[in-house]
Write a protein that binds this DNA or RNA. Sequence first.
DNA 1: GACATATAGTTGTTTATACAACTATTCAAA
DNA 2: TTTGAATAGTTGTATAAACAACTATATGTC
Lengths: 146, 146
Amino acid sequence: MSNNHFKKGELYSFITGKASTAIARRLQKKFNATGLNLTIEQWSVLYHLWKQDGISQQELCNATFRDKPSITRLVDNLEKLNMVKRVASENDRRINKIYLTRQAQKLQEQTMDLAEETLNEALNTVPPEKIEVCKEVLQIVYDNLK
Amino acid sequence: MSNNHFKKGELYSFITGKASTAIARRLQKKFNATGLNLTIEQWSVLYHLWKQDGISQQELCNATFRDKPSITRLVDNLEKLNMVKRVASENDRRINKIYLTRQAQKLQEQTMDLAEETLNEALNTVPPEKIEVCKEVLQIVYDNLK
DNA sequence: GACATATAGTTGTTTATACAACTATTCAAA
DNA sequence: TTTGAATAGTTGTATAAACAACTATATGTC
């Protein structure tokens, strides 16, 4: 018998991710209002390329927690937007290395500012120590299920 | 200046909802393994109809935090699966009241058990007081942004 | 009662996700 | 060195979400 027994009616939000959905929608609206023609999912791929440019699609799968077809199509769309380029690896011709274009490099600061702004709006009024606990719990949930 | 300033690299999980995505995937796998031909999104609609049968599509929009086209198509698919029926309201012919079929009524206990099981797996090893803090924070996030 | 407005729901289009099936390349073992 | 397995990526198909544009019905004000 678990000590984490959920009262009925409380499990819904946890499963559907109401909070993260609300955050993503708010950030998307900020992108649109700024004239950034970029989805949150595309941004999440750029996010990892800003940290390390030239990683493979498989590494993007691991980093973004998506499957290979999802990354194939996100990279397709990012290429159409002229945000990334696929470059076949010299060593292993199965691998595409994904590189940011100059245009995408320029978007990092602006979009990260909007993301931080969104999180500040979301967590406004929440004491820092509670945020820490929340982050910790969500990390454990992820580790328990991955 | 916010006191909720995120260290760079920590905002990603909050925005993408890694934890709730992992929970939803785990539950979907349990549905599939049990032979339940039902998506999590369809289940989330049934969830609210189990609480109150015969509510309108608009009420389902509010309850599930989805827009009207999304609910139209979810109800379309649930009707094809013979899980719900649209019934035009007598008083106001703009309104469809959505009713569970007997088949859908039977699924409540089984699927709620699987959902609770999934959450117990997710929150295994997390002390109850931290779960409470996490739920509280996520609720505030939602209220701040909705 | 007529007309403007609001509300409920549907349809079209684009993007994204999950799963299965597929191709191409590399690796490893006989 | 050949062959079978593993790995990287793509394509097909179904479901879902967001947004805009649309139809139908109801409401409220003159």
